[in-house]
């Protein structure tokens, strides 16, 4: 989806701010959110990591930028708990008010009115053996899809419609675009694709720069007719 999470190449965020001696968790609630997310995945309340990531992508965009990493996770997990019928938002609000919280604070969670139903599965991980051979080969020029996707996808907007070169074949993997929505695993071959900086950023590109992305077969089209600019 064209959400706030798709940050590659966005401008205006300023310098990277680092914290000396940063602890693993700053506050205990961050460790709670981390533990909750892992428990939800283990218990298949959240069925797969694609559903998990998409829930975070769907949170309030202002909260995405201002609530921090574990605030984003909190918004995503709360979204899934409500969508799966495991949490009553009114019960949470009552508990929040009892603990001195305000009903006026921005809430990150954005549960859908008609959420996707992601069926439970015993499948582990995302690697899958494929019986079909890869469509593309190492060294082959490829062009990425230029079409925006409203749901979950792992083709960043900055690399849409761009020309690259396959540098590695990474094996068969569950397709996040369908798996996140409970529409099946539809595993595909995954390719590492190299994009020259000039192809992504034009004349503003820094010299001697390349970006590598791992992209699913359905994101790619053969591009032998087009020359890859060095």
């Amino acid at each position: 989806m064209d959400g706030i999470h798709d940050l590659g190449g966005r401008q205006g965020f300023g310098p990277v701010v680092r914290e000396e001696g940063e602890p693993v968790f700053h506050r205990r609630w961050e460790a709670f959110v981390f533990t909750l997310a892992n428990r939800m995945l283990a218990e298949r309340v959240c069925v797969n990591v694609d559903q998990f990531r998409h829930a975070i992508e769907r949170i309030d965009p202002v909260a995405y930028l201002t609530h921090g990493y574990y605030g984003r996770w909190l918004g995503g997990m709360e979204t899934i708990l409500i969508e799966t019928g495991n949490l009553d938002p009114e019960e949470l609000t009552a508990r929040l008010l009892a603990r001195g919280g305000s009903a006026h604070d921005l809430v990150a969670a954005r549960p859908a009115a008609n959420p996707d139903v992601v069926p439970a599965t015993d499948q582990q991980g995302a690697r899958r053996e494929l019986s079909v051979a890869p469509h593309f080969s190492v060294g082959q020029p490829v062009r990425t899809s230029s079409v925006p996707v409203s749901g979950h996808t792992r083709l960043p907007a900055y690399a849409r419609g761009r020309l690259g070169t396959v540098t590695a074949i990474q094996g068969g993997w569950v397709l996040p675009d369908s798996n996140a929505h409970g529409r099946g695993e539809h595993p595909q071959h995954l390719y590492c694709v190299r994009f020259e900086g000039s192809e992504l950023w034009g004349q503003e590109s820094e010299p001697g720069q390349a970006v590598y992305l791992d992209l699913f077969e359905s994101y790619l089209f053969p591009a032998e007719q087009e020359a890859v600019k060095p």
């Binding site: 693993v24 968790f25 506050r27 205990r28 609630w29 961050e30 460790a31 709670f32 959110v33 981390f34 533990t35 909750l36 892992n38 428990r39 218990e43 609530h67 921090g68 574990y70 605030g71 909190l74 709360e78 949490l87 019960e91 949470l92 508990r95 929040l96 009892a98 603990r99 001195g100 919280g101 305000s102 604070d105 921005l106 809430v107 990150a108």
Partner: peptide, 29 residues
């Protein structure tokens, strides 16, 4: 922060239900 209060409210609900415990959180840390 509001996120902290919200997370703690959620934790208190889920611990009551037995979905996870404070010890689980300690173990993550």
């Amino acid at each position: 922060s509001p996120q902290e209060i919200r997370a703690e409210a959620l934790e208190s609900l889920l611990v009551e239900r037995g979905f996870l415990t404070g010890e689980d959180v300690d173990e993550s840390i």
